[in-house]
Amino acid sequence: MKKNLIEIWGDLVALKDLLIAIAICSVTTMGGFFLAPSTDATKQLFFGLAGAVIGFILSSILIKPKRTVTEEEK
């Protein structure tokens, strides 16, 4: 297997996937924020947070975790 992963914040990531995830989450979060009425800070926060969660789910579906988990009995 090719060695192309780097360690950030205690776990391994692929650079390209990291950029994709940051882009997706930022767009959905700020998208949510700007969809909310600009006079209502609470709604802006909530729409933004909902966007963040959507972004997180999307990136979890699109990106594969960089861990190989083997389950075995001792």
């Binding site: 979060t29 963040a52 960089k66």
Partner: peptide, 24 residues
């Protein structure tokens, strides 16, 4: 968690959190 949640998504979530709260 180990099989399904990529670390990239968690980092993405954090970054977008900061963007949002900084803007607010």
């Amino acid at each position: 968690v180990l099989k399904r949640i990529p670390h990239e998504a968690i980092l993405g979530l954090f970054i977008s959190f900061i963007l949002l709260l900084a803007y607010l």
